[in-house]
Structures are given as C-alpha cells and as structure tokens.
Simulated assay, not measured.
Amino acid sequence: MNLNVLNKWTDKSFDGLLECLREILPEGNQCPGNYYQTSKHLCEVGLGYEKIGVCQYDCALFYGENANAVSCPVCKSSRYVRNQIPHKRLRWFPIKARLKRMFSSKHTSKDMRWHKEVRKNEAGILRHPADGDAWKHFDNVYPDFAADSRSVRMGLASDGFNPFSNMTSTYSLWPVILIPYNMPPWASPNGTNYLMSLLIPGPKSPRKDYDVFLMPLIEELKELGPLYDKMMELRGQHPPEELSDKEIMECVLGRDSVYLRGWGRSPSVTTSTSHRENIVGNQPTYEELLERLNDTTSCLNATNEQLSVVVDILRHNNLMAPPPPPPTDQASDENLRESPSISVRESQDDS
C-alpha cells in the first residue's frame, strides 16, 4: 500500500501485482486478492480511519451522542446537502492501535524507552526535550507517570496545505499530527514515526473552532488514562514473576489487542474464543520465524559444501568432465571481430 501511494498506482495495476504475488506464493496463501481486501486488512489491524460528519459552519461534530442527529445541535442547520451527503467530513485516525504496534516491535519499543534508559542526563546540556525544564516539571508533578519509561509523551502539530497542488486554489486541508518525544533525536523527526490523528476538511482554516475538531482525539486520550491506572494497579498487586507485562496487557486490553506480533491476520472480534485460541496458538512469533530461517540457511550451506566435495571426488577419478575453461581476452576479441563479418555475409546472401 505504501508503494501504491508513493508511485500513484491505479487500482487495476495494484490488483495485477497482487495476482502475480498469489501465483508466486504457495497454494493456500493468505495474500489478499485485490485492493479492497488489502484495505480491509489494514482496518483490521488498526490502520484505518473513521468519517465523522461536520456542521457546515464548524459549530459541532456529529459524533458521540450527536452521531445520528440530522441538524446541528448549535445552529440547527441541516447536516446534509442532499441525499444523505454531508457538508463536510472529518477523517479521524485512532492512535491506540498504532501506539501498541510501536511497542510490539523490538526496535521501536527500544526507541520508545530511550529517553529514560539510554539518554545521558548532563546538567547544562540540552539534547532532547527530556533535558528541558518543562519535562522535568511534569515529572515532579506526576512521579508515577514519569517512573515508567514506557509512558508516552507526544507533541501536537498542525498546518494547512493545498491538496490540489494549485496555488491559485483557496481550498486547504489541515492535518493534525502527533510526534512521539520518547524517541532519540535521530528517530523522533523521522516521518515514519509520526502519527496522523485528524484530517480537518476545508475550504478554510478552522481558526477559533479548532477545539471542535479535536474532540475525537481528546476523548481517545482520556480513555488511555483509566487503562494506565488499571495496569499500574495490577503491577503493584502482582510482581513480574507472577504476571508478565504481556499478561497484564491481555487482562486490561484483551487478547486481540495484544496480538500484534508477526505477519498473521489478527483474529476478528466476532470470532469464537476457541477458534481464536487456535489461531493465536498456531501463529509463530518473529523470533521463531527468524530461527527457522537461520536453520534453513545453515542447512543449505552444509549441503553446498557436501556437493562441492562430491564433485571434486568425481573429477579426480575422471568420472565427471572438468569444468569448461573461462574464455580468455584474446578469444573474446576474436569473437567480436568475427561477428560483424558473419552478419554482413548473411545480409548479402539474403539480398
């Protein structure tokens, strides 16, 4: 999907690529068949987005208790232009699943703990936001939050841009991006670690109504607070020897949320418990797949060495023809000189 966006592929060309991959892979593979199925897989792992209706005057969102409202609760204007088509739509990208995926990889999870476990704390030197007075003041106010190196700290940034690449157009979109500050300075500014949270529609800047569009993000961040408190409570009651971090996350978030390792498909919420356990139990982890790959590589290297020994023995006993000698530079030059004359004769005979 990333290559599809970067290279501006059409849906037809993307479907053709998936068909080639399905033919190359063994039978019974789980490769999606078209663009629509691929988009569904992204939504299942938490990389989708939700559309929220917006009042034409940016008074309120049709979200939460007003999700099924037909008119704006503030100015009483109609929600739709015609035929159930809203005036505006806000794209909301939930961040909880993407934060979980950051801690599911051993590389990004190490970077998310860098600010406390690896960073050098030297007085008078400002290398990272954690060296600033605001960070230290927050740690003093909330010591329990600061004690855990996995506590996520993010910055919010937003700016308008013209999506049509035409400076004469007055239409602008306003993305809201979250930047994780836990990571080291060389990883935090990397665009791959940014979290797109909202895409505010135009045609103009939201200005004083910016807080209206931030409502889904604020509600989602509020949900993370009680979950963190519950996890800390379980950690205080059960030491790591009795209950691991993964088991605590399973108790708080559910097994479907913790199942983020590997390339396998995440079990659906509607799947029965026994079937879900079978899927998760049969799914190899990243370490198991890497170990299998190393074992296969070592076996192939050993087989190549044995074959080379057998070939040397056969050639030593004149049971196998020796390898052909490599062409010399003189022979290659003669072939190059002869090739034009041959082509000329053939062309004369044809004429």
Rank of each mutant, 00 (worst) to 15 (best):
M249W: 10
T285F: 01
Y259T: 06
V269Q: 09
L293R: 06
V280T: 12
A302T: 07
T297H: 06
N318H: 04
N301S: 10
G264E: 07
A331R: 10
S308F: 02
T273V: 12
P239F: 05
G264R: 05
I248D: 00
G236V: 04
P267Q: 01
M249H: 11
L336Y: 11
N294T: 07
A331Q: 14
P327V: 13
T273S: 11
D333M: 03
G254A: 03
R261Q: 10
T328S: 15
K246M: 07
L307I: 05
L319N: 03
P325R: 12
T273L: 10
V309E: 14
E291G: 04
T285V: 02
E233K: 03
P322C: 11
T303Y: 06
M320E: 06
S244P: 00
A302R: 05
L243Y: 11
M231N: 02
T296C: 11
T297F: 03
S274M: 07
N294W: 05
E288W: 07
V280K: 13
E305P: 01
S308N: 12
Q330N: 03
M249N: 13
N317T: 01
S257E: 11
K230T: 06
D312K: 14
N304R: 13
P324V: 12
T271H: 04
V309D: 11
E250F: 02
S244R: 00
A331C: 03
A331V: 09
L293A: 06
N317F: 09
N317Q: 07
P327L: 15
P284H: 10
N317R: 10
T303R: 09
H238A: 00
G281C: 04
L336A: 15
P239D: 14
R235E: 15
T271E: 09
L243C: 08
E250Y: 02
D256G: 11
L300E: 15
R235C: 08
L300Q: 15
S244Q: 00
E242T: 01
L234N: 00
L243W: 11
E233G: 06
L260S: 14
D333G: 01
L253Q: 10
N294P: 02
E247Q: 13
E291A: 09
E287A: 09
C251V: 01
Q306H: 09
V309L: 09
M232P: 02
W263N: 03
N304F: 13
Q237V: 07
M249T: 03
M249S: 12
N318F: 01
T273D: 09
T270L: 07
I248A: 03
E305L: 11
V311E: 15
T328E: 00
D295Y: 07
